[in-house]
């Protein structure tokens, strides 16, 4: 069911945009002719975007589910360990110092580096400690990275650079090419594989770390897998798209009742729902235009995600009270 939802939204995403295509045109463009306008739009503009939105949404949903399972906290999300903030800082550095102007992939490459550096630091800081020290180290590293981003905005040499940084921070899939796909997908696939391996351990972790350990689960190894998988996958995703919040938080909750709340079984459905969410949101961000300005993907998702988050907080409070 989720898979067909995903396929349908992916197909819709090929058709929708400032130039609307009929399904017939899209099929023709895919099957035969790449040279005409429709063919160019489909193969060079729409398809890479569809692939990226599915991969990015998928890894965000998956990583959110793993984080919530690992930390046994329904409010955890992939950004918790500083991955997103680090990727933002890296990309902002690339824009600020003008590397992004000289070659297009500078921002994503710097973003990747930033993601790995921040998670690495968080991990070293939390070494030997448990899950709580990992959260605290992640929060600390995150705020340092965010401070760096603010500093760059504050000191930006010209309004144009500031505008570019702002746009990047808002998260978008506009003008992404196959180069971006080639850059991000290896990391997303590698990270996703590591995250999927944690399923069994996450089920046992529902009993707490001591009981999981007693059931033969290597908790510290699971923590490593989750952390490195998130750094690779979400790092790769954020490096290409900019910050996209809330998907990792929301996707697991949407599917949790379907799998009887088992934290390990929620991984694949959360991944699929994440992919659907980002693909749909990307369609919306292309087609909804306010006063001539298209809505950025990250902004659109936040607009929908924030009220959901509020609902979730109230819901969780009711459940635990």
């Amino acid at each position: 069911m989720l898979v067909s939802c995903l396929l349908a939204s992916a197909f819709a995403s090929v058709l929708a945009g400032s130039v609307w295509l009929t399904p017939r045109e899209a099929f023709q463009a895919l099957a035969f002719d790449h040279a005409d306008l429709a063919g160019q739009i489909v193969t060079q503009i729409r398809l890479p975007r569809v692939v990226l939105s599915m991969a990015i949404g998928g890894i965000l949903g998956l990583s959110g589910a793993v984080m919530q399972g690992l930390l046994r906290n329904p409010l955890a999300d992939p950004g918790l360990l500083g991955v997103s903030a680090g990727a933002s800082l890296g990309a902002v550095i690339a824009i600020y110092f003008g590397f992004a102007a000289s070659f297009t992939l500078a921002a994503p490459l710097f973003g990747l580096t930033g993601a790995f550096v921040t998670t690495g630091i968080a991990f070293i800081l939390a070494r030997g400690g448990g899950t709580l020290s990992l959260i605290l180290a992640g929060a600390a590293v995150s705020s340092i990275a965010s401070a760096g981003v603010s500093l760059a905005l504050n000191l930006s040499p010209n309004p144009y650079a500031a505008y570019e940084i702002m746009t990047w921070l808002m998260g978008s899939l506009a003008d992404r090419s196959w180069d971006h796909v080639r850059l991000a997908t290896p990391f997303i696939l590698a990270g996703g594989t590591m995250l999927l391996l944690t399923g069994r351990a996450l089920d046992a972790l529902a009993l707490g770390e001591a009981q999981a350990e007693s059931l033969g689960i290597a908790v510290s190894r699971t923590r490593m897998l989750a952390l490195i998988g998130t750094a690779l996958g979400v790092g790769g995703a954020t490096a290409v798209s900019g910050t996209i919040g809330f998907v990792g938080l929301i996707a697991p909750h949407l599917v949790r009742p379907l799998v009887a709340h088992r934290p390990g079984k929620v991984l694949i459905p959360a991944m699929l729902v994440g992919a659907v969410l980002v693909t749909l949101a990307d369609i919306a961000s292309r087609t909804l235009v306010f006063r001539g300005m298209p809505l950025n993907l990250g902004v659109f998702i936040s607009l929908i995600g924030a009220p959901f988050f509020l609902w979730l907080v109230l819901h969780v409070r009711r459940r635990t009270a």
């Binding site: 529902a206 009993l207 001591a210 007693s214």
Partner: peptide
């Protein structure tokens, strides 16, 4: 092994 105050974190 059952630790002190063992519990479950999700509505399983």
């Amino acid at each position: 092994y059952l630790p002190q105050r063992a519990g479950v974190d999700w509505p399983i």
